[in-house]
């Protein structure tokens, strides 16, 4: 990859990676730092990465960096045994997309990430598995369970009757 392609990667995918990290950790400053670190890492090995693979590389690197940050902050919720007692709250908003994003914040980190990669970026299960380091079956399971949790949130918060 040459400098021009690197700059294209910054302009073309920077917002996407930032959006994904921001929705995953809900902290704009940390998200900015993670994306900056990701592009700094890309710049250090810019000659070793093909431009065609740079998008998934960016998402994968940013995701791993985000997991490290979450683990450092000890805010990682156990995927299998998370407490969903705080999942449902009174919901007054009418915009479905806004309510869905608020519901997304209450999901476990891994479910949240795979759903974001699926809905925001349109990755298939295999690509999501490569980014997150999960198997295809795990990705499917997390996505389906996440969808059910989102639907239940909408129903129980009276957004859907």
């Amino acid at each position: 990859m040459i400098v021009k392609e690197y700059n294209n990667a910054v302009r073309e995918f920077g917002d996407h990676v930032f959006r994904f990290i921001l929705r995953s950790i809900k902290d704009s400053h940390r998200a900015d730092d993670i994306v900056q670190d990701t592009y700094e890492k890309l710049w250090r090995c810019v000659t070793e990465i093909e431009y065609g693979a740079v998008k998934s590389w960016l998402f994968s690197t940013a995701y791993n960096r985000m997991i490290d940050v979450i683990r450092k902050d000890s805010r990682l919720v156990d995927v299998e045994y998370y407490d969903d007692s705080t999942l449902y709250a009174e919901e007054n908003g009418n915009d479905l997309n806004e309510v869905l994003h608020r519901a997304l914040e209450k999901l476990p980190a891994v479910q949240r990430s795979v759903i974001l990669l699926r809905d925001y970026e349109g990755y298939n299960y295999r690509e999501i598995g490569e980014i997150t380091g999960l198997s295809e079956a795990q990705v499917k399971t997390y996505i389906f369970r996440g969808r059910v949790a989102l639907r239940n949130y909408l129903v129980k918060t009276s957004v859907w009757q």
Partner: peptide, 8 residues
Amino acid sequence: WPGMKSAV
């Protein structure tokens, strides 16, 4: 992304 310019 607010830091895009600095990454170019």
